[in-house]
């Protein structure tokens, strides 16, 4: 019998180790797996590289990981935000490596990682600081940058509902990066608001098919 549901967040993140690249879903606070991130705080893993759209705010989520000294590097599109103080301080003091990527390139690099592609050519970033060190290729008269795939050792995601197969539906704009990241890590873990019986999710409405998911844990209401 397939049952991806685990009892608690400690079991959910099992296998995470120091030095790992961790994909974390969310945009702002919407769709961030806060309970799974808290579970990392209770382990002794460190030296992590985080891939996420933002870099955390108000001592929660990714900011809590930064404050706990668990991160070596953050790959994101928009670290600046009201309430984002840890990333600014640590970046200024060179205590964390920051790589800033255009948002559409970030999501597509993760998509490429999940889709088994070696990268893609995008016009985004041509003639900008983003192009530094990247191959420029002219295709049909237009310039493009080669962007390489991103994959994680583990992905921590947030969804609204799951069944025991790991089929997922999301809530409103809390979907964001979660379905893409679900495809692009060796271990994919989802924190959900609700677990439902198999068959309760409309097959026409499932956003992330369970094939991508390894573990599901109930995180409680948002």
């Amino acid at each position: 019998m397939i049952n991806k549901i685990v009892e608690d967040t400690r079991q959910a993140i099992q296998g995470i180790k120091s030095g790992d690249t961790v994909l974390i879903g969310g945009f702002g606070d919407a769709g961030v797996p806060f309970k799974l991130i808290e579970a990392i705080l209770r382990t002794d893993v460190c030296d992590l590289t985080i891939v996420s759209n933002n870099a955390g705010t108000y001592k929660r989520g990714i900011e809590a990981l930064l404050l706990a000294g668990k991160l070596r590097k953050i790959i994101c599109s928009y670290p600046r935000s009201s309430g984002a103080t840890a990333i600014v301080e640590l970046w200024k003091n060179r205590q964390v490596v920051l790589e800033v990527i255009p948002q559409g390139t970030l999501t597509e690099r993760i998509r490429a990682g999940g889709a088994g592609l070696g990268g893609f050519y995008t016009p985004v970033g041509v003639n900008t600081l983003i192009a530094k060190g990247k191959e420029v290729r002219v295709i049909d008269g237009k310039e493009y940058l080669l962007e390489k795939p991103i994959r994680g050792d583990i992905a921590l995601l947030k969804a609204n509902k799951a069944d025991r197969y790991g089929n997922l539906v999301y809530n409103k704009s809390a979907r964001n990066f979660n379905p893409i990241m679900a495809t692009a890590a060796d271990i994919v873990v989802v924190e959900v608001n609700e677990i439902v019986e198999l068959g309760k999710l409309d097959p026409e409405s499932i956003i992330t098919p369970g094939i991508f998911i390894d573990r599901v844990v109930l995180g409680g209401q948002k």
Binding site: P79, L98, G104, V126, I130
Partner: peptide
């Protein structure tokens, strides 16, 4: 100032 790009380049190019 911490660099933050978000979707700015994608929007301008796309």
């Amino acid at each position: 100032t911490i660099p933050s790009v978000g979707g700015a380049i994608d929007l301008a190019v796309g």
